[in-house]
């Protein structure tokens, strides 16, 4: 179904300076510096603003804000679906826009998601290119904008050209909408961040990078990739190689399990 079009740029770049840890990150030294910068900016500005926004904004208002921008985004998502020949999905995306813009009071209520058969999709221009066989290209850590692969930077053009806000000519309105959208999107990441902090071990930069690359790969294949993404040098970990069965772990289970059950009744 998917055609392998030759992408000239990325294989050359990759072959030139592949690292053993990750083949998609030839610019790692630069990316790491930008990442450190982004983390500093986020910590100083964006995250406090998002926290404040969550604290002062009632939850229904936040939902309405998120729905409003989500409704604008559905135009882009629908177009991306059409560009992949996913006609049915694309049609439902535009159906969502029609429902939400009218019955949903200009997009403030996501009435379409309440109906069966009109779920929100996740599509963009990067996924369109991926669908037609374009490789992701090198991983980039963009200043302020965060992680992207070369292919997925096309997303910025897509958002720009397919956003209905392009037709608003009052720059103050456009800017404040952009700002609000940014803050809302950052606020949505707060629970993700909490999970990431619980999960992170060792190198945070690598953790973010590997997560991003795998997630994008999975999205291109709509959650069903034929093979897992090979990030670094091929590490053969066959079942024959790892003799897990020979390992006697029975003692371990016995130590941990009663401890858990013992503590639960004593806790308040």
């Amino acid at each position: 179904m998917r055609y392998s079009l030759p992408l000239l740029l990325s294989p050359l770049l990759l072959a030139a300076c592949a690292t053993p840890a990750n083949h998609y990150d030839p610019l790692e030294p630069v990316n790491r510096k930008v990442y450190a910068f982004n983390v500093a900016v986020d910590k100083a500005v964006l995250k406090p603003v998002a926290r404040g926004y969550v604290a002062v904004t009632p939850s229904p208002v936040r939902t309405a804000v998120s729905n409003f921008f989500g409704n604008l985004g559905d135009v882009y998502i629908g177009t991306s679906n059409f560009l992949q020949g996913k006609w049915r999905q694309g049609t439902t995306d535009f159906g969502r826009v029609i429902f939400n813009s009218t019955l949903g009071l200009g997009g403030l209520i996501d009435i379409a998601s309440m109906a069966p058969g009109l779920p929100k999709h996740n599509e963009d221009l990067g996924q369109v290119l991926g669908f037609w066989g374009v490789g992701s290209g090198p991983y980039l850590m963009l200043p302020l904008l965060g992680p992207k692969t070369l292919r997925d930077t096309t997303d910025y053009y897509g958002i720009y050209y397919l956003s209905p806000t392009r037709h608003i000519h009052d720059s103050a309105t456009v800017n404040s909408m952009g700002g609000l959208n940014l803050v809302e999107r950052r606020a949505q990441l707060l629970p993700v961040e909490e999970t990431m902090h619980a999960a992170a071990f060792g190198d945070e930069y690598a953790f973010v990078r590997d997560s991003y690359l795998q997630r994008r790969y999975s999205l291109v294949w709509d959650g069903r990739p034929p093979v897992p993404l090979q990030l670094g040098d091929k590490v053969e970990v066959d079942d024959d190689e790892i003799d897990v069965k020979s390992l006697d772990m029975s003692g371990l289970e016995k130590i941990e399990a009663p401890e858990a059950s013992k503590k639960s009744p004593s806790a308040p």
Binding site: D203, F207, D210, S211, Q214, S218, G223
Partner: peptide
């Protein structure tokens, strides 16, 4: 789509 095993391996 983010595999825990793959992520921790790095």
């Amino acid at each position: 789509g983010v595999s825990l095993v793959t992520n921790y391996r790095t």
